[in-house]
Computed example of a mutant assay.
Amino acid sequence: MNTPHLTAASFAAIDASLMLVEIDFDGTIRSVNDCFLAHFESRREEVLGQPYRHFCSSIRADEVGVDGVLARLAAGEPVMRTFEHVGPQARTTWMALSMLPVKDALGHASHVLILARDVTEAKTQSVENQCKLDAISRSHGIIEFDLSGNILDANETFLKLTGYRLDEIRGQHHRLFVDSEEQRSPEYRQFWQRLGRGETASGEYLRFGRNGRRLWIQASYNPILSPDGQPAKVIKYCSDITESKLKGSRPR
C-alpha cells in the first residue's frame, strides 16, 4: 500500500509560513530557512554552526532544561515546548517549537527538525490576563459550583471571609451559606435553575459563615460555558459589604 506524501507545494507553503531549523543532537544548527533568518535579522553564514541555545534566553534555557530536551529528541521522542528567545536588539520573543527527530535510512534518529512560530503576542496576553485574575483573586472571594450548586473550589479570600477551610466545604451545597427559610423557598430553587440555564445573577446577598456569622456580600454569579457552548459550572465573585450594610450605607 502506497503512503501519500506531502507535495512540493505543501512543503513550500510550510517553508513560507513557519520558521524551520535543523539541528544536530548537540544543538548545533545545520540549516535554517528564510523565515528564521528574517525573524532574527540574521544572515545564514552567521547562524550555521552556532548552538541553537544562542537564540534562547540563557535563564529560560536553564529553567526548561535544553540539554534534557535534546536527550529526549536523541531517543527519538518528539518534543513540543514554548521557549523564550532573544530576538534582534535583545528583544524578548516567545517561540512555540515542534521539535521532531528525523530518522535516517536505517530508522535511527539522525538530527532534529524544528518548526517554530512566534507566539509572543499570545504569551504576553496570557501573562497579562493571569495578572488580572491574580489581582481579582486577591481582592475578591471566588468560589466555583457545579450546576446543581455543589462547591467545587474556592480561593483563600473567600475562605477567610467565611471562616471555613476548603476541605470543609468542597462537595457541600451552596445552601451551607444560606439560612433555612431561604433554602426552602421557591425563589432559591429558581435561582439555581436560572444559573443552570446559563443566566447570570448579581446583587447584595445575606450569607452565613462559620458558626452562623452573618455576612453581607456584593456578588455576581457567572455561568461558565463549555467548548460546545453549554453551561458547565458557575463562578461567584464576591466582596464583603457587611460593615457598610450595618452602618446603613450602600457600598460605593
Rank of each mutant, 00 (worst) to 15 (best):
P4Y: 08
L6K: 06
L18F: 15
F25K: 03
G27Y: 03
I29G: 01
L37D: 05
L37F: 06
A38D: 15
A38I: 04
R43N: 05
P51E: 11
H54N: 13
S58M: 09
R60D: 11
R60C: 06
V66H: 12
V66F: 13
L70D: 01
R72W: 01
A74P: 02
A74H: 08
E77T: 11
V79N: 05
R81Y: 07
F83L: 15
A90I: 06
T92G: 02
S98Q: 14
S98A: 15
L100Y: 07
L106Y: 01
L106R: 08
R117P: 02
E121N: 09
E128T: 14
N129T: 11
N129A: 14
K132I: 15
K132M: 12
A135P: 07
I142M: 14
N150Q: 10
I151P: 04
D153M: 11
A154R: 01
N155S: 06
E156F: 02
E156T: 11
T157Q: 10
K160W: 05
R165C: 13
R165Y: 09
L166V: 08
D167V: 12
E168V: 10
E168A: 06
G171L: 12
Q172C: 15
L176Q: 04
L176Y: 02
F177T: 07
D179K: 05
W192R: 00
G196N: 08
G196P: 10
R207Y: 04
F208K: 02
F208H: 14
F208G: 01
G209I: 11
N211W: 02
R213Y: 04
S220F: 01
Y221M: 04
Y221G: 01
P223A: 00
I224P: 00
L225R: 11
P227N: 02
P227E: 04
G229S: 08
Q230W: 05
D240R: 03
E243T: 14
K245E: 08
K247C: 11
G248E: 11
R250D: 15
P251S: 09
P251C: 07
